[in-house]
Design a binder for these strands. Structure first.
Lengths: 121, 121
DNA sequence: ATACTATACCTCACAGTTCGATGCATTGCA
DNA sequence: TGCAATGCATCGAACTGTGAGGTATAGTAT
């Protein structure tokens, strides 16, 4: 936890951020989340199951998510939903993400000259 | 290099991106870069020397940076500047970064409902 | 029936990164 | 002479995601 003292290691929590946000919009299960992230980002971002499940478990352990096992068509699925604590966590992560991207943007745009970055190819 | 096949591990190249951009604007030396990143981002981002020097060396090795040793006030400094190849690399990284943040933004804003994320605290 | 694919859960070893500490050398100041 | 700041550089510890692998059920094609 504690997200390191200095930087949140930059993207430390991106998977967590995306997962929380997705679940806040709609209750989902692990396998579904993996596909949702891939399809909604046009495959730009792909978070594998090996990364999703551990996050899900950790988040539930921290009380940010609540799970309920449901059987659909004989398939057992574990649906996760965001708790009150989870919403706070999402808000914190979203805010951190905003600060981070803003900071990077500041350097990318060169502060005030506003030079555009051109492709040389 | 090759930037992995799937995701560029998300931020894989943020330090590289920032350093290249900084050097493209102005010739700098390692120690100066560390402080520049910290100050220009309002301490939101801090990339330690342990991360900066390896990037500098790797980039130079790849021909993206050129170095020149200069002595100022008896202090020996190694100034780095971006080469043509380095500019291409910067453009690529900047583009990847743009795609990545756009993708994340898509999920954060919930696609089309445009729900805002509110702090619950 | 049997095979194969998709669904659905989960875990682990490996690779790649960054952090923080540390070491060395020189300059300026008290 | 002692101490702080500057400046370069490297190393080990810790963290994270990838990719592969494992289990099991349902549906579809052969």
């Amino acid at each position: 936890m504690a997200a390191r003292e200095t930087n949140p290691n930059f993207m430390n929590g991106v998977p967590e951020l995306l997962i929380l946000r997705l679940l806040q919009q709609e209750e989902m299960y692990g396998y579904e989340i993996v596909q949702a992230i891939r399809s909604r980002t046009g495959a730009v971002i792909t978070i594998g199951e090996g990364a999703v499940y551990p996050v899900l478990h950790g988040l539930e352990h921290d009380g940010a998510l609540a799970s309920s096992r449901k059987t659909v068509n004989g398939r057992s699925r574990i649906y996760y939903s965001v708790t009150h604590a989870g919403s706070s966590r999402l808000a914190d992560l979203a805010e951190a993400w905003t600060h981070l991207t803003a900071a990077i943007q500041t350097i990318l745009t060169g502060g005030q000259h506003g030079e555009a970055i051109q492709r040389t190819s």
